[in-house]
Amino acid sequence: MAEARVGVVTFPGSLDDRDALRAVAFMGGEPVAVWHQATTLDGVDAVILPGGFSYGDYLRTGAIARFAPVMAAVQEFASGGGPVLGICNGFQILCEAGLLPGALIRNRGLAFVCRWIHIRSEGLPGSADAPRGEVLHIPVKHGEGQFVASAEELERIESEGLVAFRYCSAEGMVDERFNPNGATHGIAGVRNEAGNVLGMMPHPEHAVDPDLGPTGGQHVLEWLLAAARARVGAVT
């Protein structure tokens, strides 16, 4: 079977792009670097928008990156059902691009926070590896990761089951004490209605290699690679 090819987009100011490429390779996928000025995705089977401070995030996080030439191709890829994972700044960009609901604002504590935390999977579509309730040990590192949405949108997110992850204790209990940024309803990640676009503040690419620490990120990348392989299979 052909290897699943996963594109990782580098915007000016992307920081965790090389880490995402390395994590894809570690998990058995074929990493493909994608430049922000590209107008096609070169036939990749999945896309990662990595963490960082695209364009310095001097305006509003992700607000400029969503207009990068590559984003038109990402939009098209996503609307065709292609799996897209936005991590941290990538999540912020997906929200700005309208591919995911809600928005990310400054942490309630006002300071940047880098910390190993736990998140509870609320069920990733099509994944056997991270069933509902599984607790992942994974790091966050962001200054603007507080998930917010309007009352109606929040109602829709919850009722349609679009919450992918919530901050929780090591045992899986969702409580404000374990919420690093004040996110509404402890939301750490959301997905779109079709289930192919996932955005999250925690960094799965920094939690795959057991030599460096816990490996809660493996589940997320396994989901992405499984979705990508399904497309490889569908095409061939």
């Binding site: 965790d16 090389r18 880490d19 963490g51 880098c114 920094h206």
Partner: peptide
């Protein structure tokens, strides 16, 4: 040190709070 990103670049074997920091 929680206000500092200690993980980016994926080389941090041992980060802040220890005697030494270790980068692979």
């Amino acid at each position: 040190y929680e206000q500092y990103d200690s993980l980016v670049q994926g080389g941090t074997v041992l980060g802040p709070g220890a005697d030494a920091s270790v980068i692979r």
